[in-house]
Simulated scan of single mutants.
Amino acid sequence: MPTPKERLLSSQNLRMTRIPSQTFSSRRFEEIGWWKWKSAKTSPSSKHNYLLRSPLYRPVKEVYRDFGGRVMRSAVINNSPFFGIVVNPDGSATPDSGIDFNVLNTLRNKLNFTYQLVITEDGQWGGEQPNGSFTGMIGKVQRRQAHFAINEITITALYSGTLTAVLTVPSFEKPIDSLTDLLDAVIKDGFKPIVVRGTSNEFIFRDATSGIYKQLWDVFDPKDRYVYSWDEGIDKVIAGKYVFANAYLGAVIRAKRRGLHKYHFAKNTFYPQSYGMACAHGAPYKTLFDTLLIRLTSAGLVQKWTKDEVNKVKSADSDSSSDPGAITLIQLQAAFFILFIGYFLAAIVLVVEGIVGVCSKSKTSA
């Protein structure tokens, strides 16, 4: 074991020796600062102890404020409007559009990294299996095949029906606006709840041990409870008495393409809306990602990108002449402005008449 003096000489030699990064084909070393050994006595009877005057490494937060162009692998699934991708002939994926696409590009520009997309073979978001492994995007992260996965999840109940039929035919089918309503509709009216297999929508019911989630899973039809894509679930709702539990935004956009008047959306969501990124265990940049995602959400950017995606979709209802649509306050605001202007002008005339009347009386009395 080297003595303190030998360690001091070694550190001095390291300090005197500088390796120019130009000698390497790519940057592998980066100068981050200097350090010195500091001599100190911990007690009068002890010998000199040599301590570092300052930390040898930069804090993790400072290191990952700039990724230096590092290539990050992001696990994705083709799930518009969250992350739309185009699969190339060679099997690679190119990002196309979506809310997550905008979020990821913002993080890339802020932290100075590039990314490659890793497609999940099963097309699933990901959930835990009995052996402890995970499927889908989460499985890619768990197996270190991707650095992170990003997705937004909000679940609501969706079933087919028209508002007119619900209002005019009470005995037909009442609106399903909560999980309790869904349970009653399954037991009394023969509705079948369905979910996309291998998503968190499935696991929240399947893994429940008590409460309404467990009660609902017990009445799922084992032979007819899964669909394998979001579009399949939306289409199945129209084909029969099915209730599709799905992310709210994705369901609205897909229903908009087919005609919103064909669907009823529950008033109550049963899975809190959240935005997050699944990172590999122990990832030092996780806290930084969390902070930036909170800022993006608080600044209203995620809501703005969400609105942009909804506005991109052409509604099938726009081609239908059967329902002109309800008149909104925005459409009536011009009438209110004209009414307000009329009141304002009338008030001015009244004031002027009063002033003229007062002046006339003054002249008469004079």
Rank of each mutant, 00 (worst) to 15 (best):
N131M: 02
V227T: 08
N79E: 11
A40E: 12
S320W: 11
S21E: 15
C359A: 14
V63N: 09
G198N: 01
I204C: 04
Q333A: 01
N201H: 13
K307W: 06
F113I: 00
S11F: 10
R70P: 06
T120L: 00
I153P: 07
D90A: 08
G357D: 09
A185W: 07
R144G: 08
P44L: 07
F220G: 00
T114I: 04
T180P: 10
I77S: 00
P222I: 00
V352W: 04
Y159C: 09
K140T: 06
D189Y: 09
V313D: 05
T297R: 15
R258F: 00
L104Y: 03
T94R: 13
D177Q: 10
I32H: 14
S178C: 02
L332I: 01
S54R: 14
R254G: 07
I355Y: 07
P44K: 07
D96H: 14
S365L: 09
A245H: 12
I253Y: 08
W305T: 01
L339P: 05
K5R: 13
C279F: 10
L292K: 13
T287A: 14
A146N: 09
D218E: 13
L52E: 12
F220Y: 01
Q273E: 12
D184Q: 12
F101E: 06
N102D: 03
V310H: 09
Y285L: 02
I194A: 08
G136E: 03
R73F: 07
S10R: 13
N109V: 03
T162D: 05
V103N: 00
A247V: 10
L296D: 08
T164S: 10
K38T: 13
P193W: 04
L9A: 15
K312R: 12
L107R: 08
P4F: 01
A93Y: 04
R225W: 05
I327E: 05
S45Q: 14
I212A: 03
